[in-house]
């Protein structure tokens, strides 16, 4: 076993991990942060997307032991305070951008990254940048609506 020290959503964690344990299982099962989902386990679907030093990565494609010293944000870290929704969450809710909700944590993390690191995006650009996230129910229309809406809301806070 290897001890892994890392920061998630601003909080320091230290926990043992077997070398072959995936980061997504470490986050969910060792640290009990169940917001991050695991979908395909092959790096395609993006349900396990987290932010690592502010950039999205797929936590099923990384070993927990590789996250030593990492600074990570998961979907739990989006909420500005308990019971309050972030602009990404608010936009997904208002635009009905989810049905079963399984893929939503991954899409929310992508939204957090994309709206802050791009100029105003067209629908085509959003679709291109969300290529690594699958939703098997909504057909993406509302998800693209929600990302556009979230970006508008984010820009409004900057004015």
């Amino acid at each position: 076993m290897v001890t892994v020290n890392l920061k998630i959503n601003g909080k320091q964690y230290s926990e043992e991990a077997e070398p072959r344990l995936l980061l997504v299982h470490f986050i969910r099962d060792a640290l009990k942060l169940k917001g991050t989902h695991i979908g395909c386990d092959t790096g395609h679907c993006g349900a396990c997307t987290i932010l690592w030093d502010g950039k999205p990565v797929k936590s099923c494609q990384i070993l927990a032991v590789q996250a030593e010293g990492a600074n990570i944000m998961t979907v739990e870290g989006l909420e500005p305070e308990d019971g309050k929704l972030s602009i990404e969450q608010e936009s997904f809710r208002e635009n009905f951008a989810q049905q079963c909700g399984y893929c939503t944590p991954g899409f929310l993390m992508m939204t957090r990254y994309l709206i802050r690191n791009n100029e105003e995006m067209t629908r085509e650009e959003i679709r291109e940048k969300l290529h690594g996230n699958y939703c098997m129910c909504t057909g993406y229309q509302q998800i693209v609506d929600a990302v556009q809406d979230a970006q508008r809301k984010y820009f409004a806070t900057k004015k």
Partner: peptide, 9 residues
């Protein structure tokens, strides 16, 4: 190459 997340890693 692949997608945004894979390109970051």
């Amino acid at each position: 190459i692949a997608d945004v997340q894979i390109r970051n890693r």
